[in-house]
Design a protein around this nucleic acid. Structure first.
Lengths: 141, 141
DNA sequence: GCACAATCATTAGCTTTGCTAAGCGGGGAT
DNA sequence: ATCCCCGCTTAGCAAAGCTAATGATTGTGC
């Protein structure tokens, strides 16, 4: 693949990502959670009790930023902060029942909206997109 | 492809997009322009004089948001605001020489950074990603 | 022709997200 | 016991997004 083509893919990937997120942003009202909060909650539910530093790293954000996001999730009762028994400086962040239920119940309206869009694709396209997403995950890391 | 798999692709696409943009955000420092500003400038340079409403629509943002972004571009001398001769409520936003030069000079550092990442992929992966991006563009519209 | 409505942009004010710098308390090493 | 490091939080700043309200101009209806 030539350099020109690679640049083209990069530019299009960039703006497609921006548009995708801007489009989906409007569909949030259901859960009342913004993108970063949903993304963090999703990680917490999936990866069980996790420290703040690890969570921040996973979400590619600085600890103070994540601390505030966790504040918001705690306030909504979706997540709990417990001092780690071993090292009391550290914190174990885990989902509450409500938090787990929200994610399990497909509560993510953004994702549901996205699923709706994906359903309109042909099966082969969906498969190709799935493969692209795998690669994208590596690129984004 | 089952519904569960489709949902998985949707969720992963969502968070991969978030991470991609967060990662690229840090690479902006060269031009000193943030993503929304670069994106707006890029549109202005490409699409010539444009009204604020049109620009906001193109960038999928509300007019007040775009007005502030244009403020910043004007302040940096990259763009100029002129009252439209026909309808004096309206405004013609156009790139200055500096603004055009910045974009022409490969100014989009974010895209360049992304190109760098794509270069690390195997050729087959790059092709698969290109195919995924095509599909993504349809989904994001 | 004049009053009223519609339109384009901006201003004001709020929220969220991101950052860095600085502070606080708990652990570990010498 | 002291000193330093580490994990997290707090404080404070900038940017991006929104809605609501304001100003200025244009178009309409009578």
């Amino acid at each position: 693949m030539g350099d020109g083509q690679t640049r083209d893919v990069a530019a299009r990937l960039h703006s497609a990502s921006i548009r995708l997120l801007r489009t989906l942003r409007r569909e949030d009202d259901g859960s009342g959670l913004s993108a970063p909060r949903l993304s963090a909650l999703s990680w917490i539910v999936a990866e069980g009790p996790v420290s703040l530093a690890d969570l921040a790293a996973a979400e590619q954000v600085r600890p103070p930023t994540m601390s505030r996001i966790v504040d918001a999730l705690v306030e909504r009762g979706l997540v709990s902060r417990v001092a780690a028994p071993r090292d009391r400086r550290s914190v174990r962040i885990m989902a509450t029942e409500d938090g787990a239920k929200l994610m399990a119940g497909g509560g993510e309206r953004r994702v549901r909206a996205l699923v709706g869009r994906l359903h309109k694709l042909a099966d082969s396209e969906r498969r190709a997109l799935a493969r692209g997403v795998e690669i994208l995950e590596r690129v984004a890391r």
